[in-house]
Amino acid sequence: MTEGRVVKPLAVFVVVLVAILGATFLLAVLAPGGSGPPDGQSIDGQSPPQYQPDAVDAPVDPEAGEIEIDTDTNDRRILVDTDHENQVAERDLEPVTEAVFEADHTLEYGVSDGDEFGDELDRYDGVLIIQPLQSYTTAERIALREYTDDGGRVVILAEPTQTRLSTGFGQSTATVSFGATDVLEQYDVRVGAERLYNMDDEATDNNFKSIYASPTEESDLSDGVETVNFDTAGYVATDGGVDTKFTAVEGTRTLETRRLGTYPTVVRNDNVVFVADTTFIRESDVYDADNEVFVGNLIEFLVTDEPSSPANGTATENGTATENGTAARVREGAALRR
């Protein structure tokens, strides 16, 4: 009897509880949508049109071609200035050095020890100045001016003022500026205040700051060149009296002030050619676009006798200078040196 008092209510408890929970479970299971559709029914793949290869693949400029230097002359000497903290290493110019060698000319780095830059210019047929950070002395400037007035040829490559990152113990930034503005100004040019950029994918080598430039007219410098690629391009500011040979392609703007314009990147003032970029001649970029052809043309400019204007002499058929005989004098000077 005592057992029944406990067992029976307990049985009622269990039966009712099971009935409630069982009914709840059945209701839940039988409720519409309770089991859900198979996963596969909700799988619906996508392949957006803007992700397709045709939409995203950027053409890569082939790095091909040869630096060809085609001159009637030989044994000419080109001085690469290294006396003014020039931002160039011999290794950067190895492809150019090789091409100059194959054309039977010589590229030399810096004047001989103990010699002054200005005093030694006459021993060279051409001078290549790449991004000097140090200024030239008054004597050097005058010497360079006399050199070019006498028919010597100079190519100057420069970059606009920019901030560079230096590494080592910790990292710091430094402002790097072209240091030979006085030299440039005597040829009526300056380095433009800003770098250039272009957001048109067709106007760059896969980076907005790696812009293209094209010739403005047919000339010895543009012979065989349709497009050159400048990786740290600036522009040339001029007060007139120079020939613009290349301009940045349409749509190019200044990096800081976003001014749209037609920016000169290569100009010539008689025996001086000024290019507002230094990367195109370096090993990493020299075969981009038509850079190698342009570099070949620049070297030909440096080692060719032909005077650039009547003021400096008249070219003869065999390419030697007459009247003031400056180019011939340069050559004699170079011969003496040898």
């Binding site: 029976k8 009712v16 509880l17 409630i20 709840t24 839940a28 299971v29 309770g34």
Partner: peptide
């Protein structure tokens, strides 16, 4: 009284656990 208590207890426990059982069964509706 014991039946009433058992029944009441069953209802209370059922009321407590019924939502758990309900929510344990997936419902998309």
């Amino acid at each position: 009284a014991s039946y009433v208590v058992a029944l009441a207890l069953a209802l209370v426990v059922g009321a407590v656990f019924a939502p758990v059982v309900w929510s344990g069964v997936p419902s998309a509706d």
